[in-house]
Design a protein around this nucleic acid. Structure first.
Lengths: 154, 154
DNA sequence: TTGATTGAGGACTATTTTAGTCCTATTTAA
DNA sequence: TTAAATAGGACTAAAATAGTCCTCAATCAA
């Protein structure tokens, strides 16, 4: 339902934990303990964030992870594509096959507009925004948008 | 990857077909033939669109489907929620469990802002926009956003 | 009134994607 | 040299999505 994967959700939790203390590196085990996310899963996410150059890592004893950039320069779009690959609402073939038959392609172009809008929205929010507490007054439109779910953490 | 389901994609194709000729009802079989989407799948999509009051249906011989509203009044957000349920980027528990531990909930509120932005974007584009051909000049940012895929139709 | 046509509803299966785990190799501090 | 960490990737399990099919209800026309 146009939903982020759990891993991406976890990633924001992990990143905000790391962002709270930038004076030292954080080992995967420490992060797992602090967030309650299982270690192998934490580890998997951290590796992907390193590949995307969102985090930098230090190997060996006393090793761990730290932010590779300032929180202001880590956009949500970056985090999403680190975990889930490129952000694209529609699956549109660049090779023409099937796409410009009947009614297909007149529609496609307009999806791109939507793609772009969403991408901009995600690009404009950074980790710095995410770790800043928000006013509680906004609770009212949580009801409109969110759907209930059993639990976030397993 | 923050992607629409295939069914939603099909739905836009089907809706734009129906919108092209509003003078008569269109049977599922006719739509399947015109779009190249398998009949059972077309049928499933049409039923969901009727439930969402995007289409109205006539049963029996000479029956079929037609738009229940003007194309200008059918938003993409409506189509998406008809096919995929409510639009929500994050799975956030309304029951507190797990969410206000450690770092969870400071983050959540900001996701809602993103949700809202995306929802607005999807609400602002209608079927009328989708069936209107777009200028080809925009082809340049198709490269940035879209990812290649084998084929849209099976 | 009856038969053909067409949608409604929902159960079911198959496929694909996502989540989660684990193993082995490499790096580094002590 | 050893212990503590990450890197990379293979593998399994679980969940979501896609797709099909069956039975029932409604409508039209002969």
């Amino acid at each position: 339902m146009l939903r982020l994967s759990k891993l991406t959700d976890y990633a924001t939790v992990i990143l905000s934990f790391i962002a709270r203390d930038t004076t030292q590196v954080h080992a995967a085990m420490e992060i797992a303990a602090a967030t309650g996310i299982a270690l192998p899963t934490v580890s998997k996410i951290l590796k992907r964030l390193v590949n995307a150059k969102v985090l930098s890592s230090t190997r060996g004893a006393k090793g761990g992870y730290m932010l590779a950039r300032l929180p202001e320069h880590i956009s949500i779009a970056t985090v999403i594509s680190a975990l889930e690959g490129p952000i694209a609402i529609t699956e549109c073939s660049i090779s023409q096959q099937g796409c410009d038959q009947a009614l297909g392609c007149g529609i496609r172009g307009n999806w791109n507009l939507i793609n772009q809008t969403i991408h901009n929205a995600l690009e404009s929010v950074t980790l710095a925004d995410m770790i800043r507490p928000i006013p509680a007054q906004d609770a009212q439109w949580q009801q409109e948008i969110l759907i209930p779910v059993a639990s976030l953490y397993r």
